[in-house]
């Protein structure tokens, strides 16, 4: 708004720089967010950063009240995101438990349930209702689900013995065999 300039004068260089920096910054920001939205969940082949899942009492992992991914090195991890208010989760709850009971004696596979934005009483009622015995805990502050960029619940992530994601299941499993066949891919 340099209205008073009597002679023809351009936009001062520093103003131009500020404008372009602002514009490029804005576009870059939106572009990065857009690509984040488009890429969806973490992809198979990605190394999963370490995370800590606190556990509900009664659903501890080897007696500890929290579990760290890095402590599970050498084991295959099946990480299931669920919530008590989630109807489709109920479809697969029994299947997950059955698969867990199948693998539990071998000690090569760990099942983890991450309870996504839920209330503890309802979550416990849900776990009890479906007789779930594997380790379960709340995804505090949605930190883990944000790390995995989950789109919703249920979603299940299969992490191999080296901490690398190798399979993502969006939506409920249809059968125990489906779970077993995915686990079997990485079991010797």
């Amino acid at each position: 708004m340099t209205e008073t300039t009597p002679q023809k004068r351009g936009v001062p260089l520093w103003v131009q720089i500020v404008i372009w920096v602002f514009l490029v910054g804005l576009l870059a920001l939106v572009g990065v967010i857009l690509s984040k939205r488009q890429q969806g969940t973490v992809q198979p082949g990605d190394k999963i950063p370490d995370f800590t899942l606190p556990l509900f009492s009664g659903y501890e992992y080897e007696g500890k009240s929290e579990v760290k991914l890095s402590d599970l090195q050498g084991k295959l991890v099946v990480l299931n995101f669920w919530a008590s208010w989630c109807k489709p989760c109920e479809q697969e709850a029994a299947e997950l438990e059955e698969a867990w009971e199948f693998y539990e004696p071998g000690g090569e596979v760990v099942f983890l349930g991450a309870d996504y934005v839920d209330t503890e009483p309802e979550a416990r009622a849900y776990l009890k209702k479906f007789g779930i015995t594997y380790s379960n805990g709340p995804d505090m502050g949605t930190k883990i689900s944000q790390m995995f960029r989950i789109r919703g619940v249920p979603e299940t992530y299969f992490i191999d013995q080296n901490g690398v994601l190798y399979y993502v299941k969006i939506g409920p499993f249809l059968s125990v065999d489906e779970i077993k066949s995915i686990v079997a891919q990485k079991l010797p």
Binding site: W85, V117, T119, P121, E122, P138, M140, G141, T142, Q146
Partner: peptide, 28 residues
Amino acid sequence: QWRELIRTQLSQGMTEAEIKQYFVDNYG
């Protein structure tokens, strides 16, 4: 369910600030 949770927490004597903090810790 969350509203019921607030009700439970209120009856346990938690203050407004504590309840809000609980929600932030749990749900971000």
